[in-house]
């Protein structure tokens, strides 16, 4: 089973996991990393390494989701990207997290990552625009 690490500023990631659990129940192979203002970069890097090893224990790959391209969680997460084994998706949202757990288990990591990217983008809509259609 693939693993998920949600790394964000403050406690956004843990809250996303809680929100997701509330909708679909317990989430296997998932964890959140919270980056605080006072955190030392090397300590955060170590936290990433531990989290990736932990949720990736099944050997099916790990997807890191982060809140913001250019933020510290994404900057550090980026250094763990490793072709088929670890990938990084920015702009995490609840639909993306839900879809991670509700996708077919036999999808490869890169296939799943592409689906989730498109799914997250579809989840952003301006309702007044929809009404004009």
């Amino acid at each position: 089973m693939k693993g998920l690490v949600i790394a964000t500023h403050a406690d956004l990631g843990a809250s996303l996991l809680r929100a997701c659990e509330l909708i679909i129940g317990p989430l296997p192979n998932a964890c959140a990393i919270s980056v605080q203002r006072e955190d030392d970069i090397d300590t955060v890097r170590q936290t990433f390494a531990t989290a990736i090893a932990e949720v990736g224990r099944d050997g099916d790959g790990v997807l890191i989701m982060t809140d913001m391209l250019g933020g510290t969680p994404a900057n550090i997460g980026g250094s763990f990207v490793d072709a088929e084994r670890v990938d990084l998706l920015t702009g995490v949202s609840l639909p993306m997290v839900l879809k991670f757990f509700n996708s077919k288990a036999d999808l490869g990591l890169s296939e799943l990552a592409l689906i989730l990217k498109a799914y997250g983008q579809q989840g952003i809509q301006l309702i007044s625009e929809l009404l004009k259609r």
């Binding site: 391209l69 250019g70 933020g71 994404a74 980026g78």
Partner: peptide
């Protein structure tokens, strides 16, 4: 290269 690309993409 990797860190530069990520940085440039973020701005």
């Amino acid at each position: 290269t990797m860190r530069r690309l990520l940085m440039e993409a973020a701005v």
